[in-house]
Nucleic acid binder design. Structure first.
Lengths: 125, 125
DNA sequence: CCGTATCCACGCGGATACTG
DNA sequence: CAGTATCCGCGTGGATACGG
């Protein structure tokens, strides 16, 4: 919680580490992956099926990035062939609330946004 | 507001329009711009000075995108030379809360994230 | 099943120069 | 002052093929 008593704002600095973190955590496929893993642990190919548009390469990259940031865990079960299960971590769960806030915002404001886009596109034609 | 009465999760769909909207609103420079404009209306070059790392081209693009989505307004004062003032709109202000939630999360969890990164990088070396 | 390796196209964003 | 125009490198992400 940042200081809300300060009359001046300006303390809302978006520095490089912040930006980088948000980029890693909010990138193209992360939200979908997080969404799935918030419900249940998933195998790699379960995730692929749940998110049909993602390629294998991108899904691997997304999972590695989230793992590196401590958002998901990777569990390898040494069967033949191997089974790999991905789970959300406690740290990852703390991301749920702010992401939900963002998605709620998007849901709520989407009509106004679309109006604004139409209006803008009309003036520029 | 999504339906919070549903016991099941899985309703947290991230579809293409959602992703596109978030991409437009959370892109590389938008947070910094929004941050400035939440405090006060700004001229173009005021914004450049406030965000030294942004190029003219990128700042223009960011402002156009935000304007198109109804997040900021552009006011041209017909002096010589022209003055252009950018302001946040009421719609834009509704973005503040979810973005703050995200930045608060980043502030709070940054140490844990950095630990996770070090641990991960150590195992992979 | 769960990846890695390779190739390639495309678009973003920076640098620079110029204009009303 | 507030942009537009142009060029260009570089990373990201898709397609495809192969490996443990």
């Amino acid at each position: 919680m940042r200081d809300t008593t300060a009359p001046r704002a300006a303390e809302l600095r978006i520095d490089a580490p912040h930006r980088e973190l948000l980029d890693q955590v909010l990138d193209k496929w992360s939200l979908s992956v997080l969404n799935e893993l918030c419900e249940r642990p998933c195998r790699f190919n379960e995730l692929r099926r749940a998110i049909p548009a993602v390629t294998q390469k991108s899904l691997t990259a997304t999972l590695r990035r989230l793992e590196r940031n401590g958002i998901v865990e990777r569990h390898v079960v040494a069967t033949r062939p191997v089974a790999v299960e991905y789970r959300i971590t406690p740290l990852g769960k703390t991301l749920r609330a702010p992401i939900d806030a963002l998605l709620d915002w998007a849901d709520a404001q989407m009509p106004r946004i679309e109006n604004a886009r139409r209006a803008f596109d009309a003036t520029v034609e």
